[in-house]
Design a binder for these strands. Structure first.
Lengths: 126, 126, 126, 126
DNA sequence: GTGGTCTAGACCACC
DNA sequence: GTGGTCTAGACCACG
């Protein structure tokens, strides 16, 4: 599992973790029942607080993306492909709604938004 | 000048004000040297604190979009249409870059983003 | 008498008036007993409030630079050349003290200040 | 980090803080990534409001001199020595231009200004 | 009437 | 513990 964080970002670190890990699970890059790194290990690797990692894992668990076996560790939940598709959509739409509302408020027409999305999409690193 | 705020949004109120007013100036809807509502008046109308309005005005002033004459009031700065176009693009691209990067990280293709933007655009309030 | 104001400056308008008029008197450009423009006239010319002009004239009178004859108008006070020289110095030093203190706080040595004063002096309009 | 304020000065407290801290950063006295005192601590030390300190920090951040990591604290931005030199000059010249313009308007010759700067420099506290 | 500054104090999110 | 936001209210200078 690969994650990277930018501590200076305005997005909270636990959110960055959640976003990246959930995306990998939903895209199917992490197999069902595969183990996630132990909280302390991941915290040490990323040089962040254990509490922060724990918060991200808790979020993932509450969303049904991972499960914990006390004393054994944390594992990827099994998701049907329908599940995965639904979750992806749901998560996505929630965010898009906010963003698009913002563009509308800035006075952008639908065509303009799409035009800019095309332009920016290629330049962006990921 | 028309502004509206949603106190429940996660976006700070002063930021909402800044966004809306700057958009109107950049779109040229507010004439150069036109007076903005006095901070106290606007605060009362929106039922928020004077200080919150002031913070928005401070941001606008620091961006060179408005100017203040103490004891007289606050006014729209004169912007060439080239200026306006530049600022609009700059502001927009900065934001789009972040958003699109996020969608990419979540594993979305360009087509998918555009498809969803179309769908969401209509249902969104403003 | 020639005065010009910049309404956007952070320096109050009445102060701008005071500075310019007092400088002209102290430099001897305005003869003793020469009439100053009536308050209302000057206010109209400069498109500012009568109150503002009045405030400047009051300051000048309090400093003994002008005198008022009710019903006749306002006139330049008679100053001995010693007087003029004293006032000029006094006024100047008060201001310089603040400015120089600021440069010192910014970590500038005496030599540096002088070097920069020389450079800037020529470029400045007046 | 050493700062001192004079509450009686006409210069706003937050501006005094900004001036002193920015000067230290630009002079390179504060190392990159060194932590600034927490706003609450500094406020208590100086016996001023937290908000006043925050305002100074906001200014510093907007000028790119410090950066904030929410929940962790505030830190000195990394500046190349070229950067530092540029900023110092820029800030200085902006201010000097105003001051010198004022002296010129008061009818002072270059020699006189320099003579008085020399005299005043030593007596000034800091 | 206008904005500029400062205050004390509250609540929140994050680490 | 950290900073981020918002509040109500005060006092001042300016026009």
């Amino acid at each position: 599992m690969l994650v990277s964080i930018s501590p200076r970002s305005s997005e909270p670190i636990y959110q960055q973790l959640y976003d990246q890990i959930s995306a990998q699970i939903i895209r199917g890059e992490l197999q069902a029942d595969a183990p996630l790194p132990p909280i302390r290990t991941l915290a040490k690797e990323l040089r962040i607080s254990v509490i922060t990692v724990k918060k991200a894992y808790e979020l993932l668990e509450r969303e049904g993306l991972i499960y914990t076996v006390v004393g054994r560790g944390t594992f990827v939940e099994e998701l049907s492909s329908a599940d995965r598709s639904d979750r992806r959509t749901e998560e996505l739409v929630r965010r898009l709604r906010e963003d698009v509302a913002h563009y509308k408020r800035m006075g952008l027409a639908l065509d303009e938004i799409i035009r800019w999305v095309r332009i920016v999409f290629e330049e962006v690193e990921s």
